[in-house]
Write a protein that binds this DNA or RNA. Structure first.
Lengths: 156, 156
DNA sequence: TTTCATGCAAATACTTTGCATAAGC
DNA sequence: GCTTATGCAAAGTATTTGCATGAAA
């Protein structure tokens, strides 16, 4: 992939088997992943990459714009950072249900435009952003509603 | 503080010296902090709280709406989660310079309104959100421009 | 007096680093 | 052949947990 090779060149880096394996795994990835999962997938595909090497290459992959850190969540998140592919994907943000953990991706251009405006107002050149909306999804709202709407005692 | 006592009651918890110390430290806090810093401050104030206890109480403080996880950063963040007080503060989001690490707080009601709209469209009840804009601040842009008119990456 | 909270130490989890070997270029 | 990359093991951090003791209610 051209952009990764550019970054490698800039770092006088080499396109090793392991880096190619990482690219394959990541470019086929769909959701969020962590370093351990990448190493596991690489192994299962017969092109193993050590966890150490995953960690060492993640910064390059980020620099190349191939992956980014994904949402970190607020309340109930497991430890460790998760990543997601951004290359060959349209930009999106995340809407997370704090009850069931479901993550919905969304894109809302008007928000992006306002973000640009905020950055400009403060003299910043905006490079990227993280937006995570946290709430209760429709399904969990229904469940909660069904429970709480139930009267404990009938009015007489 | 009433809201913390409510949460304690709900958990059948007790208002210990240590918890009072944490409240004092946090309510006097200005910026972001991590668990270690809270413990250090408590010690220096003569009302020490062990690091373990800080960790154990953070979830309660979050539940009480007194603190929240703060921005986690993207590229160059040091490890560990940082927190910030939200109690008795107006809501705000963060604009971070990826060169010098400077963090500017901002609030932009129009963005909040659009976030509500997004959540509603997806059937979510919005509870909170994290928005972090990452870019290059005016000062760093000047420096970079002076050295070389090096273009920065496009936002993805 | 009953139960919960704390502190310490140990255990985990995550991430980074040193070093010898292997592999790009 | 020169230099960077890898894997392993070990070292660092960040965070959680077990347990005996101390403190709320």
């Amino acid at each position: 992939m051209a952009r990764f090779q550019d970054v490698l060149r800039a770092h006088e880096g080499r396109l090793t088997q392991e880096r190619q394996s990482l690219l394959h795994i990541i470019c086929a990835s769909v959701g969020h992943f962590n370093p351990e999962e990448v190493a596991g997938l690489a192994r299962s595909k017969g092109r193993p990459v050590s966890l150490t090497t995953v960690y060492r290459n993640l910064p390059l992959l980020i620099e190349a714009g191939i992956v980014r850190r994904a949402t970190v969540g607020d309340g109930l998140d497991r430890a460790g950072v998760r990543y997601e592919r951004v290359w060959n994907r349209t930009h999106h943000d995340h809407l997370t249900c704090e009850r069931c953990g479901r993550v919905v991706e969304f894109s809302y251009p008007a928000i992006e435009i306002l973000q640009e405006a905020v950055a400009r107002e403060h003299g910043f050149l905006l490079e990227r952003h993280h937006l995570e909306l946290i709430g209760v999804c429709a399904s969990c709202r229904r469940k909660a509603g069904a429970l709480s709407a139930r009267p404990t005692r009938r009015p007489h």
